[in-house]
Computed example of a mutant assay.
Amino acid sequence: MARRVLRAGALAGVAFVWLSGAVWADEARRIAFSFDDAPRADGPLLSGAERAETLVSGMARAGIDGAAFFVLTQSIDQQRDGAARLRAYVEAGHVLANHTHTHPWLRDTDPATYLADIDRATEMLDGFDNVVPYFRYPYLDEGDTRDKRLAVVAGLESRGLQNAYVTVDTYDWYMQALVNEAVEAGHPLDMDRLRDVYVEVLVETVEFYDALAVETLGRHPDHVLLLHENDLAALFVEDLARVLREDGWDIIPAADAYADPIAETRPDTQFNGQGRVAAIAHAGGASPRELVSPWEDEAALRARFLANGLLPEEGSSQ
């Protein structure tokens, strides 16, 4: 299959170029899957329990091992069978990690309060197996000031927690919001077309950040893909993995990805919302507008859904 690549030199113009599979063919490209905000509430297509079962079986068929689930611990008791769903992920060979208790923005929180929220999550995770010492910032928000960022970094280090950065940020959460909107409007969904749009958007986003990594680092790092534990992930994870492999990617456990040298690279920047590679590029002088995938834009995604008949046309009635 031809490889979809966004040339890093044309990032500002967001122009996609199709290159032959021979490009970079001698270099391994590896990516790990991670899922934020588990266990989430029932969705419009699947209940929480159905989602967990579908996601576990889909990853098993796809050969995805050691995925990381970042747990929002207030949801364990709030969601029906929340603890059982997390244990299902563990029993399938995946790992759990800390995503705070209440999902605060660090920019709106003082470091002491923020770290206390992390501590509460740690206490709640003590009752589970396969909990790894990773912490992922909600919203990838590492604070609005350097002092605040460094205070939390010091707090994480004192607790033995590693920053579970991502290298591929996505707006999968907004695609799920668009599906919610369509279902609420009574709009019939073509599930094959929805699958294709979901997978295409995510693969194009992976290629964007990998091209950025090659231009910034001179190599392909082991990537960490940010997804959310939502209906779309459960329904289409197997398809996403298949297309990534067709495009030359190996899918690896999160623990392997976090052994990449960029885990030790801590760019001195507040521009962290697009992940570690974009932060490194920004610290090196790149403009923020060059560092954000074109599919991290709500208007662009809405237009793509509309063009594919996945939303009702404005003004139409169902």
Rank of each mutant, 00 (worst) to 15 (best):
E91I: 02
R87E: 15
D297K: 01
P104E: 11
A164Q: 08
W295M: 02
P111W: 06
G66E: 08
A112S: 15
L227T: 03
V131I: 04
T113S: 15
Y134P: 05
R61A: 12
G273M: 11
A60M: 05
R159T: 02
E50S: 05
V183H: 11
E215G: 11
R3W: 12
A263F: 09
P138I: 00
D250S: 15
V90W: 08
L202P: 07
P267I: 02
H94P: 12
I262L: 15
F33G: 13
P39V: 01
L311S: 10
W295S: 03
D117C: 11
R51I: 01
G43K: 00
G284A: 09
A121G: 12
T145L: 08
A164R: 02
A28E: 15
E238N: 06
P39T: 00
A41H: 07
E313A: 14
E296A: 10
H223T: 02
V243S: 10
M175Y: 11
T113V: 10
E123H: 04
A263L: 08
D42M: 05
G48K: 00
W249E: 07
W173T: 04
R159W: 03
Y139E: 13
G285H: 06
D268V: 00
A62H: 03
A28W: 09
Q78I: 03
E142Y: 11
G284I: 03
Y134D: 09
P267Y: 00
H99Q: 07
H228T: 02
A286S: 15
G21E: 15
T269N: 07
H220P: 05
F33C: 09
G284Y: 02
P288D: 08
L232R: 06
V203P: 11
D231E: 12
A286Q: 13
D147W: 07
M59N: 09
M59L: 13
Q79H: 01
M175N: 08
H187L: 09
R120P: 06
S57P: 02
A233T: 04
E207T: 04
Y89N: 05
M175G: 07
V277N: 04
G186L: 04
A263Y: 08
E246H: 09
D260Y: 04
P133N: 09
A257M: 04
L106P: 04
G155S: 02
A241I: 02
R3T: 11
A8W: 14
N272R: 12
P288N: 00
G9Y: 06
L202R: 01
V152G: 13
A259V: 01
A234S: 07
A97K: 05
M124T: 01
V23T: 12
N180V: 07
V183N: 13
Q78K: 09
V183R: 15
A241Y: 13
H282V: 00
A97H: 06
N180P: 06
Q78M: 07
E157A: 14
G218R: 01
L202V: 03
L217K: 04
T269L: 05
D108M: 09
P267S: 00
D256Y: 08
A8N: 05
V277C: 09
D250A: 14
D210V: 00
